[in-house]
Design a protein around this nucleic acid. Structure first.
Lengths: 197, 197
DNA sequence: GACACCTTTGTCATAAATGTCATATTATGC
DNA sequence: GCATAATATGACATTTATGACAAAGGTGTC
């Protein structure tokens, strides 16, 4: 079973869910699980992202193999030293990372890198952090992207970022353990919190 | 494995559809998918337009990388009046458009909207237009995205933008006919050059 | 608890599509 | 030119879709 496949067959879905593939086909017919039909016999192909969404919605455990999807972090910070520091910390934890030092690069990487989470300094020159949060939240395709504000601004400002749409915040300077803990809460725990043993 | 190819091999089609290339060959034999045979061994080549049509007909997801076949233009300009004007002109020509008024929004829309072409004002506040061009050109996934610089800066600056990686430039104020002509040169010619009616 | 009723899931058989393998041929890149 | 990788092809194995039917589980009533 190739792991690099981006799509799954009904049989593969069946194995992951511990059911018969006949059942999986019925789930697809009833619209519980999104799938695409191939031209020939109408074989189903399920996209990995759709499958993970299905698992989440139904409180099913998510196989560890699929969690690697959720390990991309975009670091948005104009201070190179800070960004590098965060990157080193996250690399140790197995995250894939990219650094964006200005608004334009951040935007491009949001689209191309599709990070699960971004760390955002809302106090960057020429970039209105609050506006960034608002804009990201206005994009339906980015609704699952977590925003972790990492900044040196006043507590009141940090709290305001949450009201606008950020998922959490940390005040600079950030302790590596604290950062990892927070990110894991947002990224790793989120899909698993509904886990039923 | 070049991504800029206008035709696809059976192997490439197979990857995109999540099937074995043997299956793709059968689809071609059965006429589900249009393809051309090369003289030598009879290798199949599928034109991008035919593949996209095939995907549409079978309700299969269309990779973002292929969506650039359509006529989408991202207008990057902080002057709302100018942006609106360009948008009106392009709408009349059947282009789908989005406007980005700052660097971050431009970046996000680059990724999410996958425009075939962007019109870029390199004289925006807080945004270094040259840096934008360089950064876009550094992204392999955006290598086919055309950059049309539309700005009021000096001719020498406009020419410099070409050296850096822009595909063409127009000096403000821009005549609608001129804009349409230039965009059609950049957009239409590229993907259709091999098209035999 | 017993029962009927309903829904979901599993099993089976069959036909069709898809995957796998081996091999020859030829693109392709250096 | 040469070495490597990709493709076409046929034969064969495996998987899948489908319908029909059985089994398992849930819900309500008595």
């Amino acid at each position: 079973m190739k792991l690099e496949t981006q799509t799954l067959t009904t049989g593969e879905v069946a194995k992951h869910c511990g059911v018969h593939f006949r059942t999986v086909i019925r789930w697809i017919e009833k619209g519980y699980l999104k799938a695409y039909q191939l031209p020939g016999r109408g074989d189903n192909r399920v996209q990995l992202t759709d499958f993970v969404e299905f698992l989440k919605k139904n409180s099913l455990p998510i196989p560890a193999a699929f969690q690697q999807l959720s390990k991309r972090v975009l670091i948005v910070d104009d201070e190179d030293a800070v960004a590098q520091s965060i990157q080193r910390t996250l690399h140790r934890e197995g995250f894939e990372t990219k650094i964006a030092s200005d608004g334009f690069k951040a935007g491009i990487m949001m689209g191309l890198f599709s990070p699960t989470l971004i760390t955002l300094d809302i106090q960057m020159p020429h970039v209105d952090g609050f506006e960034v949060i608002r804009f990201v939240r206005a994009q339906p395709q980015l609704k699952n992207t977590k925003i972790l504000v990492v900044s040196g601004v006043a507590e009141s400002e940090l709290k305001r970022s949450i009201e606008i749409g950020a998922d959490a915040y940390l005040a600079k300077p950030v302790q590596p353990e604290e950062l990892v803990k927070k990110i894991n809460e947002l990224v790793v725990l989120a899909p698993q919190e509904e886990k039923v043993s």
